[in-house]
Design a protein around this nucleic acid. Sequence first.
DNA 1: TAGCGTTATGCTCAATTTGAGCATAGTTAT
DNA 2: ATAACTATGCTCAAATTGAGCATAACGCTA
Lengths: 350, 350
Amino acid sequence: MGSAGIRAEVGITVGLNAVVVAVTGEVPRILTVQRPLEVENLDPSARKANDKSQPRDETAPVGPEGIPFGPLDPGADRTLELGLRRWLHEQTGIEVGYLEQLYTFGDRGRVAPVENRFLSVAYLALTREVEVSGSGAPHWAPWYSFLPWEDWRDGPPEVLDRKIFPALAAWISSSGDNRSAILRRERAQIAFGLDNTPWNRNRVLDRYELLFEVGLVAEAKASSPLETQPDLALGRPMALDHRRIVATALERLRGKLSYRPVAFELLPESFTLLRLQRVVEALSGERLHKQNFRRLVEQNRLVERTGEIEVKTGGRPAELFRFRREVLRERPAIGVVMHRGRLAQEAHNG
Amino acid sequence: MGSAGIRAEVGITVGLNAVVVAVTGEVPRILTVQRPLEVENLDPSARKANDKSQPRDETAPVGPEGIPFGPLDPGADRTLELGLRRWLHEQTGIEVGYLEQLYTFGDRGRVAPVENRFLSVAYLALTREVEVSGSGAPHWAPWYSFLPWEDWRDGPPEVLDRKIFPALAAWISSSGDNRSAILRRERAQIAFGLDNTPWNRNRVLDRYELLFEVGLVAEAKASSPLETQPDLALGRPMALDHRRIVATALERLRGKLSYRPVAFELLPESFTLLRLQRVVEALSGERLHKQNFRRLVEQNRLVERTGEIEVKTGGRPAELFRFRREVLRERPAIGVVMHRGRLAQEAHNG
DNA sequence: TAGCGTTATGCTCAATTTGAGCATAGTTAT
DNA sequence: ATAACTATGCTCAAATTGAGCATAACGCTA
């Protein structure tokens, strides 16, 4: 019993995606490639046409950028992770350090041809920024250029007041009955912290999905017939559901930040405490209180002095530290996020 | 460029697995089915033989139990989640409430025939316990019967002292060089809290994987040629890597417990505070301090009085509460775990 | 019916953690 | 020299957490 319909391989295609993250100074970046693979193309007829023909009309407008994608080669790689490392290296030259499975995306409609289901297992990868090159013209793009409302380091992003809040208000009041209006308002409150509700930096995916539903992000055009015009101020669009994947990655990373010392994966061997703080801020999207940040880091003994001194700080020289890898052993659950500093508010108020 | 080898569908089979959790009184349970599908059978020759022939020799020993498994039907279900809900209902009659994607397992060797890769997307489902019936003889099995070392509610589980610690010691000293001995000791310390290192209730997967590697769990037999004899005191074996999936689920759930109010998914509409505490303890595997637990729950306003009173408590009657669903809206990140109470220690010491 | 076992519930208190800010120390640029 | 800037030490109040005392209210049994 229970054996009916087991072999479901018909019409399922499986691939791997990676959100590769690096931080340059204060700018968090992700690796993107131009013109993701044809099989992922939104236009079904285009896909059919291109199924066999490798060469493509180069004068045609190139598709939107996307995150790196690679096949799962059942024969070649022992584990999914190894497979991903292999093709990522082949495609971009990058040797990834930290790698973690993110989510498996497989809703129908991800890719247009409904009969054929496309499954992709997405990973989050952290690396120090390196030169990239290879097929697909990989390059580092600022993470927040895709999700501009997520960066609160200089106060609340303008796009909120200018675009998002008005659109949300319209969306709320455009709901049919009263009951649905209440539900819509509630969702908007939670996701974007309307009326007194505090902004929750971790609800990245909620926010993206709400904007998608409201029709504010460009990708929405493809799947829902809303009149609302997509707007580039609301972030660069990406291929398919890649922006959703990228949002998922940011949410996961922000969550992890507070209980695992992941920030160090993005830093060189030795660094100043401010540099560390800037990386954490870049990812969490908000400013932190400097003295308390140091206290946290030093009390938890996440770092140790190298004895070296960094002089090009722009002020008093700073000690250089290195990550104490032992903490991965000792206390398995410490991270480096804490309360907001004042800077963001100040920057906003004056 | 970059389009080579995209269509990797050859030899990949995709299915969905669910770890369905319920709590009866103080016993956390998961739903298991007998004799998981043939395609997942460990023995390659058996699989080949059974590929087409549905009927099987019923006198042959039945395979080990496993968690429910179902195909991904590309045509029928819009999302993976809906698909899972559908076949789970068909197979067991259960209507799942909370459902969350856990992990996608796809290492080669999960299933014997190496040429054919088997991918499964595992989900965690929470439900109130209900009668089950259907194909595959589903039934509720105590979760800790598969992972006995995880239940510390009555003090450190015996199996640690009796089996695990000695085996770990042997494993450590049996390592070739000194360096590898140190690494082994370190791993054992982190996972099982040897020498002063505290036991970390969340490292469920670390522990399972270490036991697997050491050859202590029965499933290890199939993949590694160790002499160590598998031992049923170390938990009931499951089919394939299902015990790993179950360990992953426990780890995820324990983690979630502390920052999301998931425990309520397992409780009836109204409940006493002790009942709630018992559920949390059942999942986290440790005793909690009663007064502080109430304080936490009440201060965070996770519950509200129903006005009713439960009299069959065995002592003074208790007020009945219900979950305040609004908290899902208000503060998105509260849970109900805290420090250990004394009971576990006491139970152990006397 | 008094006493015991059992669970419920209120309250206290010290230790620790967290949030915020003051003050001083070294550098470089003007 | 002084302004601007970053580094670093230290304080202090508020909030949270860990532990335990005390009392209430029920069923059962001697």
